[in-house]
């Protein structure tokens, strides 16, 4: 509702300025007012959500630690997993019932101490069209390949997710 009030105020300001311009001229003068109405698209990451595998302690055996798109981590067998896990959640707004596609990379490489690397495969929940109110959401989860001799330390990586308008 507040959106509408802002738009209404803005359009009355525009109308007033157009009328003002009109009044300054002869009574028969016409004025053109032009405005393009543009469709918009927004993408936001939900506050406090990141793809988070939690803390992992190696025990000398390789394991793939998986966090689903619902943020739930699958049970760890040969490594010790602790702490909360999470998936990255995104919100999309745009035109009602508009088709969209997502581009999520298949994998991402994380770099750690002394050039150590780790690979994670990514997957996202499906988003093929926005709903009748123009809203949509998707989540990104992943599977992290932990090597038997994975060096301890902090690993960082980035991945690019795009919402593609057709």
């Amino acid at each position: 509702m507040s959106k509408f009030i802002k738009a209404a105020v803005a359009s009355s300001v525009l109308a007033a300025s157009v009328m003002g311009a009109n009044a300054a001229h002869a009574a028969t003068a016409t004025a053109d007012a032009r405005a393009n109405i543009l469709e918009e698209l927004t993408v936001t990451k939900d506050a406090g959500t990141d793809l988070d595998f939690g803390t992992i302690v190696t025990t000398g055996t390789a394991e793939t630690v998986t966090v689903g798109t619902d943020g739930v981590r699958a049970a760890c067998v040969s490594v010790v997993c602790s702490g909360a896990s999470d998936a990255a959640d995104f919100s999309v707004t745009g035109s009602a019932s508009e088709a969209v596609t997502l581009t999520v990379p298949g994998s991402v490489t994380l770099t750690g101490p002394g050039g150590a690397i780790m690979n994670a495969n990514l997957n996202s929940s499906a988003l093929t069209a926005l709903d009748a109110s123009g809203n949509g959401a998707f989540s990104v989860g992943g599977a992290l390949d932990v090597a038997a001799t994975q060096a301890d330390g902090a690993y960082v990586g980035t991945f690019t997710v795009t919402v593609d308008y057709p």
């Binding site: 698209l41 993408v43 990451k45 990141d50 793809l51 988070d52 595998f53 803390t55 992992i56 302690v57 190696t58 010790v80 990255a88 995104f90 581009t103 991402v108 994380l110 750690g112 780790m118 994670a120 990104v140 992943g142 992290l144 994975q150 060096a151 301890d152 330390g153 902090a154 690993y155 960082v156 990586g157 980035t158 991945f159 690019t160 997710v161 795009t162 919402v163 593609d164 308008y165």
Partner: peptide
Amino acid sequence: DGFSIALTPIYGVTI
């Protein structure tokens, strides 16, 4: 002990 992971998503829009 163990390691921490920080995966930063870069997210955007294509038109």
